[in-house]
């Protein structure tokens, strides 16, 4: 569907994206994930046509669109701010692209009503002024406005980043539902790992203009291939592999150097089979409501953190505990 071949993006001397080759399949929800300044937005803007790559080709549906102008690529965009035109009502906003295409009034009305129904905007909503919309409604208008032109691809640039936590969770579900309903190939930019993990079919993790890892959410979470991915996605205990060997008293670690990672959920306070046992004491407790995070200091001097979902298992600072770790849960990079 979308092939990015050897894409390089530069701004004067600064390289925003380095020699990138990826393929996005039809109907996929593809997320570009990374911290601010990693090049993900530049890449999205290159796919949409607002930025020209200094090297490489962009192929959409087998057609080279690298030099094609924005409006001819068949790519719909939902901006971070939603960019709802403030001087137009909802209907006029959605109808904007159809009017540019000079469709008849009747056709415009039909199409707007049809798409509005699909994104759950009532006829009353259509007459409202843009300033009277809630964050969620603005998002639906922005999506409807992009989808009414029947693009092949929908690009979303951090559309949830400015909303409060509750609304963000709500809209995340809605966005995913709409994507499935339309079956449209979606390229989604975010810096929020939770968003990426919950919504995506595939995630491309970027750092400093370089692709760090490409894979399913399960892949990037459980099998990170770089230090950056291991620390950026999910919460981990990080160790120098060398010192870990002494602490764990385990001689058969695959690699003697580098770093090792252990996800918080892999540090257990209840006995499990074939585990390494470490004696320790609770040094800090963070209560999150649905779960708690604990920090322990082991007798051997190791600091470990875990996440405890079972709230019946409350511990206090100073409590003595036995920790159970499985050697195969360690990720050595």
């Amino acid at each position: 569907m979308i092939e990015l071949q050897g894409i390089e993006i530069t701004y004067d001397d600064f390289i925003a994206m380095n020699e990138l080759n990826i393929t996005i399949n039809e109907g996929e929800f593809f997320t570009l994930l990374g911290p601010s300044g990693c090049g993900k937005t530049s890449l999205l803007r290159t796919i949409t046509g607002f930025v020209s790559p200094s090297k490489g080709r962009i192929i959409i549906d087998g057609k080279d669109v690298t030099d094609e102008s924005v409006e001819k690529r068949g790519v719909g965009i939902v901006f971070q701010s939603y960019a709802i035109f403030p001087t137009m009502n909802v209907f006029e906003n959605i109808a904007f692209g159809l009017r540019v295409k000079r469709l008849s009034k009747k056709a415009i009305k039909e199409k707007v009503l049809e798409i509005a129904q699909m994104v759950d905007l009532s006829e009353e909503h259509l007459q409202r002024n843009a300033s009277e919309l809630s964050g969620g409604q603005q998002q639906r208008v922005a999506i409807a406005r992009a989808l009414v032109l029947q693009p092949k691809i929908l690009c979303l640039d951090e559309p949830l980043s400015n909303l409060d936590a509750k609304l963000r969770n709500q809209l995340r579900v809605e966005l995913k539902r709409l994507q499935k309903q339309f079956g449209i190939t979606t390229v989604y930019v975010t810096h929020d790992q939770e968003e990426a993990l919950t919504m995506s079919d595939k995630i491309a993790v970027f750092n400093n203009g370089k692709l760090e890892q490409l894979g399913t959410p399960n892949d990037v979470f459980n099998n990170p291939t770089s230090d950056f991915v291991a620390t950026f996605i999910g919460d981990s205990n990080v160790f120098e592999t060398k010192e870990l060997a002494t602490f764990l008293n385990a001689k058969n670690l695959s690699r003697p150097s580098g770093k090792s990672y252990l996800r918080l959920n892999h540090v257990h306070t209840k006995p499990i089979k074939e585990a390494i046992e470490l004696e320790g004491v609770v040094t800090n407790v963070e209560y999150f409501g649905l779960y708690s995070k604990y920090t322990f200091k082991t007798v051997s001097g190791l600091t470990l953190r875990n996440v405890e979902v079972d709230l019946s298992n409350q511990m206090n600072i100073g409590d003595n505990v036995t920790l159970y770790l499985k050697q195969r849960d360690f990720i050595h990079l």
Binding site: V70, E71, F79, A83, G97, V100
Partner: peptide
């Protein structure tokens, strides 16, 4: 908001159409 201009461009509006609308 520059995004509104880009949104209009994305939907095929010309420079002067964007100024006018």
């Amino acid at each position: 908001d520059n995004y509104t201009i880009e949104a209009a461009k994305n939907m095929g509006a010309s420079s002067f159409y964007i100024i006018r609308r």
